[in-house]
């Protein structure tokens, strides 16, 4: 791999990392608005407020960067980067077209799961370092939630890895067949629910429950660092949606996979992202105990059952 190719891949991933979350964010703005009988942003950029998030970014840059005096200074300042950068790494491993991924590592499934877990660590750091009771409570809730929901995600993905017989996303997507959508349906549901919870999105946004905790672990953040947390949230949606699209929906599989494969991957990921937004609008927030109950009494057993079914299927040679 030449240096030029490395640069091209890195830059294209960076561009995707900076544009796709904004696309999801804008979709959320408009879709949520119309689902609530509103119009959403209409003026920024001229046409239906397409530049609203760009304008928001400009606003965030202009704001003062405040570090509370009692805060654990370095941890506090580092937390947004810890939250954001792992999603960049995760995005780089996602295959976009047949045989094309920015980073082709043998165990990319493990890498992507590890990276998203590290991203959640940023929330914990922010909550602990802020020297704020709301932030601390939010961070603790986030910790409890991440511990609970990491497990179903890993189990569901492990089931897919067993079914495909590989830990590489490229190989897994290559071996995907539509039959998997039925066979792995419980695992897909578990992954989708757990991914929304992992991202701390409504209805699983207990850690940032604004009526109780102001903004949870992000309470003390201002300006660009706060924007990084928001960007991390939407980058998380992008990564989780694309991961779901490649693993369960077949990624580039569709008409003309060699030329239009990237389009199918992005479209499937977009549909999943729309579902994540839709769920946010339609459903109320779960209480903390309901949240834990759902994870341990429903998602984990369901994922284990899926793992068993997959194991039986692999041994029997389905």
């Amino acid at each position: 791999m030449s240096v030029l190719e490395v640069v091209v891949r890195a830059v294209s991933v960076l561009v995707a990392f900076l544009t796709l979350p904004l696309l999801v964010g804008q979709t959320e703005h408009k879709l949520m608005a119309h689902m609530q009988g509103r119009l959403g942003p209409m003026y920024a950029g001229g046409y239906h407020g397409w530049a609203q998030l760009v304008a928001d970014g400009v606003k965030f840059v202009q704001k003062e960067d405040i570090t509370p005096r009692a805060a654990d200074r370095w941890v506090f300042r580092l937390a947004p980067a810890v939250a954001l950068i792992p999603y960049l790494v995760a995005l780089a491993t996602i295959p976009i077209a047949p045989g094309v991924a920015a980073i082709d590592v043998p165990a990319s499934v493990v890498l992507i799961l590890a990276a998203t877990s590290v991203g959640a660590l940023g929330t914990l750091m922010a909550g602990w370092a802020s020297a704020n009771k709301y932030a601390l409570l939010g961070g603790l809730r986030a910790a409890a939630q991440l511990v609970s929901y990491e497990l179903p995600i890993v189990l569901a993905v492990a089931s897919m890895a067993m079914a495909g017989g590989s830990l590489s996303l490229l190989t897994l997507t290559d071996r995907w067949s539509p039959w998997w959508m039925l066979w792995q349906l419980p695992g897909a549901v578990v992954f989708l629910v757990a991914a929304v919870a992992e991202l701390q999105r409504p209805p699983f946004d207990m850690p940032v429950a604004d009526a109780e905790l102001v903004m949870g672990a992000w309470t003390e953040y201002t300006g660009l660092r706060f924007a990084f947390f928001l960007l991390a949230e939407y980058a998380g949606i992008v990564v989780m949606s694309l991961l779901f699209a490649t693993l369960w929906l077949g990624g580039w599989h569709g008409p003309f996979p060699d030329t239009l494969g990237w389009l199918w991957t992005l479209l499937k990921g977009f549909v999943v992202a729309v579902c994540v937004i839709w769920v946010r609008v339609a459903w109320p927030r779960l209480r903390e105990d309901q949240l834990q109950r759902l994870a341990w009494l429903w998602l984990v057993p369901l994922a284990l059952m899926q793992l068993m079914v997959t194991g039986v299927g692999v041994v029997l040679g389905w």
Binding site: L31, M35, G37, M42, W278, V281
Partner: peptide, 21 residues
């Protein structure tokens, strides 16, 4: 109830809004 919520939001999204700018 969960499905009803999703149906309601989807139906609202497809309906034109009453907003006067």
């Amino acid at each position: 109830g969960l499905l009803k919520g999703m149906v309601t939001t989807a139906r609202t999204a497809l309906r034109p809004t009453q907003t006067a700018e």
